[in-house]
C-alpha cells in the first residue's frame, strides 16, 4: 500500500494536498485537467520534489526522506526515457545496475527482457534507430528489469498514435501489473483509464481524491470529474 499522509506540495503559487491510499498490486490512473498537479504528485512520490509537509510511505515504511535512487520506484517520464548515446542494451542494462559493465549472466537477462517486449536482436542499436513505439518498449524493458515494486508512468506514451498507445498500455498490464507491481499512471484520456486501470483518482482544484473503482467512477462521476469530462 502506498500512502500519502497529509502530503502538501508547493512550488511558486501552486499547491496540492493529498491524503490518500493507493492499493498495492493495482493500476491506479490519475486523471484531471492539465496543470492540476498529476505529474507533481508523481514527482513527489518518486522523490524529485520534497513535500512542504506530510509523509509518503510504502509498505509501512516512511520513504519521505529517501533519495530518488533509493526509493522502491521506477519512473517513466513524458520524454527522455532513454539516453540517446547509449545502445538499447546499455539503456536497459541500467535497470540492473547503474553503470555500463554487465556480467554475462546480466547480459542474458537483458536479452531475455528485450525479447519479452518484442525487441529481440535490437540491443545493439541506438534509440534513434528505433521507432517511437520501439523506444517505449525499450524503456518499459528497463523498468521490468529494475524489479522495483512501484512503477510511475508520467504519460510516457502520450506521443504515440492511439493504436500503439493501446498496445503499450496492454503491455503495462500484462508485464507489470499482472506480475504484482503497483502502477500509477498519469493520463488525460479517460479511455486509457478504462482500458487498464483498476482504480481512478481525480486530481483537481488542488486536491487528490481517494481512488475509486474505474467503472463505477465513470458511470457516476463526481462533479470535478464530470466537469473535466464535459458532462
Amino acid at each position: 500500500m502506498l500512502i500519502c499522509e497529509d502530503l502538501e506540495l508547493r512550488y511558486d503559487d501552486f499547491s496540492l494536498r493529498a491524503d490518500v491510499r493507493f492499493a498495492a498490486g493495482a493500476i491506479t490512473a490519475l486523471i484531471g485537467p492539465s496543470g492540476a498537479g498529476k505529474s507533481t504528485l508523481l514527482a513527489a512520490i518518486a522523490g524529485f520534489l520534497p513535500p512542504a509537509s506530510g509523509r509518503v510511505s510504502w509498505a509501512g515504511m516512511d520513504i519521505t526522506a529517501q533519495s530518488p535512487a533509493d526509493r522502491p520506484v521506477s519512473m517513466l517520464f513524458q520524454d527522455n526515457n532513454l539516453f540517446p548515446h547509449l545502445t538499447i542494451a546499455q539503456n536497459v542494462g541500467l535497470g540492473l545496475r547503474p553503470g555500463l559493465r554487465l556480467s554475462s549472466s546480466q547480459m542474458s537477462q537483458v536479452d531475455a527482457v528485450l525479447e519479452s517486449v518484442g525487441l529481440a536482436g535490437m540491443g545493439t542499436r541506438k534509440p534513434a534507430a528505433l521507432s517511437g513505439g520501439q523506444q517505449s518498449r525499450a524503456a518499459l524493458a528497463r523498468v521490468l528489469l529494475a524489479d522495483r515494486p512501484l512503477v510511475l508512468l508520467d504519460e510516457p506514451f502520450a506521443a504515440l498514435g492511439p493504436n500503439l498507445k493501446g498496445e503499450m498500455l496492454d503491455l503495462v498490464k500484462q508485464r507489470l501489473a499482472d506480475q504484482g507491481r503497483t502502477v500509477m499512471m498519469v493520463t488525460h484520456d479517460p479511455d486509457d483509464a478504462k482500458r487498464i486501470a483498476d482504480a481512478v483518482a481525480v486530481v483537481a482544484d488542488g486536491v487528490v481524491s481517494d481512488p475509486a473503482p474505474t467503472a463505477a467512477l465513470f458511470d457516476n462521476p463526481p462533479s470535478a470529474l464530470a466537469a473535466y469530462l464535459g458532462r
Binding site: F48, P68, M75, F83, P98
Partner: peptide, 12 residues
C-alpha cells in the same frame, strides 16, 4: 534533459 532519468536509475 536527463537529470531525473539518471537519478531514477541510480546514475549519480
Amino acid at each position: 534533459d536527463f537529470g531525473r532519468l539518471a537519478v531514477s536509475v541510480g546514475l549519480t
